[in-house]
Design a protein around this nucleic acid. Structure first.
Lengths: 144, 144
DNA sequence: TATTGTTATACTCTATAACTATA
DNA sequence: TATAGTTATAGAGTATAACAATA
């Protein structure tokens, strides 16, 4: 298996992945902007819509410094999309949780992410399965 | 063909694409940082390594406002990676072009983008071909 | 008049370092 | 003493608006 690295085929696939990434990112930002959110704010809102989290955990997920999360959550909180709750188990911890409005926004956001579904519509179910399997092996099975 | 949108399979693929995008982006920034470049600077340098371009064209490619390009090119120029040249055909235009050092850096940058090659090593040539074809159809054939 | 690049301004994201309140 | 969250600071990317030079 592990041979090719700079062969034309591999480079072609790498190029295509770059194109997909650029398009995905662009449309994600655009979807966020439709709700007057930045990309980072939209990502945090999506994350919290799955489960309330301590600030520290948000930073780890976003792969940024905890100090940055303070501002992002501040802005989401100022817009009534998120709230900070105390953690009964540890008084140092603040749990960020979406409000009802925040949950509704997160759902709308999810729906507007047609970008990734739209192009898939051109593939048959069998092809989507193949794509899923190949991507899974690329990502390393342990995809979330 | 165009039926499924919210079926489990499609959503699974969308999720996987999101994972690939996050990983690609992260590793791109990391590769850029190894050369003390930001992601935006690395993207501009890569773009110019293909062909010198007017500031306006860079903005269009990055999908940002032209005023932002001024600063990014300023910083690349300050590091001796890029230079501004007059356009003989139109004296309003400034062509941004990589220096030799800039070209060398762009090439190193390209090489350090193993992130997208590494995971592909686990796929056979036939599988990479299949992946290429499916991605090409997603992207719409007209990939760069 | 329209276009190219720039400047000025304001906001967000980012990392670093220092601070506070808990543990 | 270690950890969670915050504040302060500085640099970079971003959009908007206004400007000079050129077309």
């Amino acid at each position: 298996m592990a041979t090719a690295r700079r062969d034309p085929l591999t480079l072609e696939v790498v190029e295509l992945i770059g194109t997909v990434v650029a398009r995905y990112y662009e449309e994600y930002e655009q979807a966020a902007a439709q709700h007057a959110l930045t990309g980072a704010q939209a990502r945090v809102l999506r994350l919290l819509s799955l489960e309330p989290l301590p600030m520290r955990r948000i930073a780890r997920n976003l792969k940024c410094e905890p100090s940055n999360v303070t501002g992002i959550v501040d802005r989401l909180e100022a817009r009534g999309l998120v709230e900070r709750r105390p953690d009964p188990a540890d008084r140092r911890v603040k749990l960020a949780a979406p409000t009802e409005k925040g949950l509704a926004t997160a759902e709308q956001l999810r729906d507007s992410l047609d970008f990734a579904r739209e192009p898939l519509a051109g593939l048959t179910a069998a092809e989507r399965e193949t794509l899923r399997d190949l991507l899974q092996r690329m990502v390393g099975e342990s995809a979330a």
